[in-house]
Computed example of a mutant assay.
Amino acid sequence: MAPPSRRDDLVKAALRLFLRDGFHATGIAAILAEAETSKMTLYSHFASKEALIAAALAHRDALFRRWLFDRMRAIGGPDPKQQLLAMFDAVGEWIGGAAQPLGPDFVGCAFVRAAGEFVAADHPLHRQAAGHKQAVLDHLVLLCAQAGLAIDTARQLALLKEGAIAEAFVRGDADAWKTARVIASRIL
């Protein structure tokens, strides 16, 4: 495996700050300080702050989906219905700070936060956030098909997952995933 590049360092540093402080509120100077790099290095890799945000979201998307889908398989085993239920256990790990690759602190969903800051539905970063949500839903649709369940079931489970994440982030309800899991078990 190749060592991280300066580009990777910038993306990871920017993502940490975006998740902590917000996309608009995080300035270039803070990113440069966090990444311990120069403005010249930043702009040799990214044409703009929005390009850096897009790269940070792409990194988070790959990291999150790999982690979530791996945890669903690890917890749920080969049964697609159990994997669907395991999604809520994985979300509980994340909310509880035990999702190592996602960082020690639960700070809500990066994609909901991005869509909230880039509100125009046709904005590229809003579309990127929507693309992440669609990719997760597509995985749930696949599992539902394997389990002989309706596509609507995937939509219902995705909505429950999103609600649990929002409740945990906005209201501080660290057990919201448990309630969502109970409802999901009834749906399944």
Rank of each mutant, 00 (worst) to 15 (best):
M1R: 08
M1F: 06
A2G: 14
P3K: 14
P3S: 14
P4M: 14
S5M: 12
R6I: 14
R7D: 10
R7N: 11
R7F: 09
D8R: 04
D8Q: 14
D9Q: 12
V11L: 09
K12V: 15
K12E: 15
L15E: 15
L15D: 07
R16F: 02
R16T: 04
L17E: 13
L19P: 00
D21K: 09
D21P: 03
G22C: 02
F23Q: 03
F23C: 08
F23G: 06
A25T: 11
G27A: 12
A29T: 12
A30G: 13
A30H: 12
I31N: 01
E34P: 04
E34Q: 11
E36C: 11
E36M: 07
T37D: 13
S38C: 04
K39M: 06
K39D: 08
M40I: 02
Y43F: 13
S44R: 15
S44W: 12
H45L: 11
A47W: 01
K49E: 03
A51K: 11
A54N: 04
A54E: 09
A55S: 08
L57Y: 06
A58W: 03
H59Y: 15
D61F: 00
L63N: 08
F64I: 06
R65L: 13
R66L: 12
W67Q: 08
W67N: 05
W67H: 08
L68P: 01
L68D: 05
L68A: 11
F69P: 03
F69Y: 13
F69N: 06
D70Y: 00
R71L: 10
R71K: 12
R73K: 14
R73W: 08
I75N: 02
I75C: 11
G76I: 10
G76T: 02
K81R: 15
K81T: 13
Q82G: 06
Q83L: 04
Q83A: 01
L85A: 12
M87Q: 11
M87E: 10
F88Q: 07
A90H: 06
W94I: 03
I95D: 06
G96A: 15
G96Y: 10
G96C: 00
Q100R: 15
L102G: 14
P104D: 11
P104C: 00
D105K: 12
D105Y: 05
F106P: 01
F106E: 00
V107G: 06
V107W: 05
G108I: 05
A110F: 02
F111V: 06
F111M: 07
E117V: 10
E117I: 10
A121I: 15
A121G: 11
A121L: 14
D122P: 03
P124S: 15
A130W: 01
Q134I: 07
D138K: 05
D138H: 04
L140F: 15
L142P: 03
L142F: 12
L143V: 03
L143N: 10
A147I: 01
A147S: 09
G148E: 09
I151Q: 11
D152L: 03
R155Y: 12
Q156S: 08
Q156I: 02
A158C: 07
L159C: 13
L160N: 09
E162N: 07
E162A: 13
G163Y: 11
G163T: 10
A164H: 04
A164D: 07
I165N: 06
I165H: 05
F169I: 00
F169W: 05
V170E: 00
R171T: 05
D173G: 06
D173Q: 11
A174E: 05
A174G: 09
A176P: 02
W177Q: 02
V182P: 02
A184N: 00
S185W: 11
R186E: 10
R186S: 09
